[in-house]
Write a protein that binds this DNA or RNA. Structure first.
Lengths: 195, 195
DNA sequence: AAATATCATATACAGTGCGTATGTCAAATT
DNA sequence: AATTTGACATACGCACTGTATATGATATTT
């Protein structure tokens, strides 16, 4: 087998194994010997490919973030209205953040180990998508002239916290609609002409 | 000296030393041997008083959270209008979260190590205060009938993320007003009769 | 007040995990 | 075919957490 193929395959195996371990045990408690063995490799491969444990987390976060952005984009594209698209994206983001994997890796360990999400290499695709939508809404005169990045960060932050709240609650299914309702009320604060 | 006094004093010394170490190096990188020595003690005292490293972080977080709540309450009390009080509290929260100590310990490591803030023993005093204010605003017919806890969580989450954004930015002083402006726009989304 | 018990802290130890330095073997190059 | 490259494995050292045991000062009891 070609060398580059082999390497790419091993990288993928390591990311997959680490993703599972990080999700199950958390970043700190995940043993590198353990999940490299699960991938049929050793730590040697890991250090060669990712530099250190942190680098591996960055790769895992990047992968999950890409998946989330793709999903959010698909949902936003369905709505042909930017405003409704934004609301739908927000709801989708809340629901995605209910996934234990997303929560543990992207929302809890990610910021603690890698720092602020907007500074990540992946640059938080989700945030970028929201910023673009807000930008359009301001240009079209639908939104008040707030700072687009600020608005996007606040909306994402609100959604993210709502998700953490839901996930920690004893009956998520009951809390979810409350959170989405509150999120959509909140978002109307940016509208020039509230409904 | 009396035994209880001594113990209380040592607890305080350990919390103070840990608080500094956690803020400077982060939870994971802070060595227990190092900061217990800085407090003139050893890990023996630590394990006796707090069980483990995590327990110590919980104590530190609790202390900082209390200080934040006291400050927020003082600011909220100044305004004799609940709505303006909420806006002022939000702004204050954003500014407090600019403190590197608050950020590193409460916003980054806290959630990663201890889990969702609303489940902490201290129960996030800040969140409770906001929830009560929102509750009053709904009773008074100023706010739409949203779920009070949901509203409080979203507002706090938005403020928190705004703070992380500001702190990571290269010129915080320029970004701060943008964030506060966006926050206040956002909050009007909860108003029954927007301004 | 003296003897004993208690308990807060110190000390010593074991286990584990990360990162690095070195080795090895297959694939690529010439 | 010989040589070089480099992806990965192996072996080692260091640091750190948590526990088990020791100690000595304070509290209790008689």
């Amino acid at each position: 087998m070609k060398r580059l193929q082999m390497m790419e395959q091993n990288r993928a195996k390591l990311i997959a194994a680490a993703r599972k371990a990080f999700a199950d045990k958390g970043y700190a408690a995940a043993s590198m010997d353990e999940f490299t063995a699960a991938a049929g490799l050793t730590r040697g491969a890991l250090y060669h490919n990712f530099g250190d444990k942190r680098g591996l987390l960055a790769a895992v976060v990047d992968q999950i973030d890409s998946e989330m952005a793709a999903r959010a984009q698909a949902i936003g594209a369905k709505a042909n209205d930017d405003w409704l698209g934004l609301l739908a994206e927000g709801a989708a983001y809340i629901e995605m953040a209910l996934d234990p994997e997303v929560q543990r890796i992207v929302l809890l360990d990610g910021p603690a180990v890698l720092g602020d999400p907007s500074q990540w290499p992946s640059q938080s695709s989700c945030l970028q998508a929201t910023t673009r939508t807000v930008d359009r809404l301001i240009s079209d005169g639908v939104f008040k002239p707030v700072d687009p990045e600020a608005a996007a960060r606040l909306l994402n932050g609100a959604a993210l916290n709502a998700a953490l709240w839901i996930a920690a609650s004893s009956n998520p299914q009951e809390v979810l609609p409350k959170a989405i309702g509150a999120f959509q009320s909140l978002a109307t604060g940016f509208l020039k002409n509230p409904i």
